[in-house]
């Protein structure tokens, strides 16, 4: 093995190692933020409707601060190597999508689209060869949103808010209908989508309890 070639190979390996360390550091940062947001959003289950804006007021600055980290990662990743390093931040990014769409739902009652989430997280579409929001990751984040909303339907009732479940029911069924039109492969996304059925069943049962007892004012909206 001639020395020059050896050095060439070793250099390549060395660069990769350094790059990996740098990305790791930035992703740790992103991870810390999504964890903070998860912690805050965990409180929705015990926050009465009127205090929700205050809670969101705590989450939103953190969500916005993700833009800096996003840019930092995009800066470190060499052009064209998006798919090489993507696995390192996939989980964190999906958590960020969850946080963004949850805030979106709580504020406006609608589902943020993929481009909207990209905006919220400050992902520039022009970085697509370094840092992007893949459709798959957006969908994973949305499934996490549904998982959490089925819990919220239950806990809202416990807090005496009988209309929330009905709102959630309409919102989630809409998402489910959307998912069922996608052509999913037999992969983790597919399996998580299948699990949505349990969330829907649970939400339906909450709506049932509320309707049966005529607890919510306008019952027939549930259909």
């Amino acid at each position: 093995m001639d020395v020059k070639d050896l050095e060439y190979v070793n250099d390549l390996l060395e660069q990769d190692n350094e790059l990996r360390e740098k990305i790791k550091d930035e992703v740790a940062e992103l991870d810390k933020k999504t964890r903070t947001m998860s912690g805050l959003l965990n409180r929705i289950h015990s926050t009465p409707a009127e205090q929700m804006p205050a809670l969101l007021g705590q989450v939103k600055p953190v969500l916005e601060s993700c833009r800096t980290t996003t840019a930092a990662i995009a800066n470190v990743v060499p052009p064209t190597q998006f798919w090489r390093w993507k696995d390192m931040w996939t989980n964190s990014l999906r958590s960020a999508v969850f946080a963004a769409t949850m805030v979106g739902y709580l504020e406006t009652g609608t589902l943020l689209t993929l481009p909207q989430v990209r905006d919220v997280l400050g992902i520039d579409p022009q970085w697509s060869d370094r840092y992007a929001l893949a459709a798959e990751d957006y969908l994973h984040g949305v499934i996490s949103l549904v998982n959490e909303l089925s819990r919220l339907a239950v806990n809202a009732v416990t807090m005496g808010n009988f209309e929330e479940p009905i709102k959630i029911s309409t919102f989630v069924k809409d998402i489910f209908a959307g998912f069922s039109m996608l052509n999913l492969k037999n992969d983790p996304l597919r399996r998580r989508y299948d699990s949505l059925k349990y969330d829907i069943k649970k939400i339906e049962e909450v709506v049932y309890d509320v309707s049966l007892r005529k607890l919510a004012p306008s019952r027939n909206q549930a259909s």
């Binding site: 289950h45 239950v154 416990t158 005496g160 909450v206 309890d209």
Partner: peptide, 10 residues
């Protein structure tokens, strides 16, 4: 526990 608390409320 949440489910149980819910059932009470309902």
């Amino acid at each position: 526990i949440e489910d149980a608390a819910y059932a009470i409320m309902v």
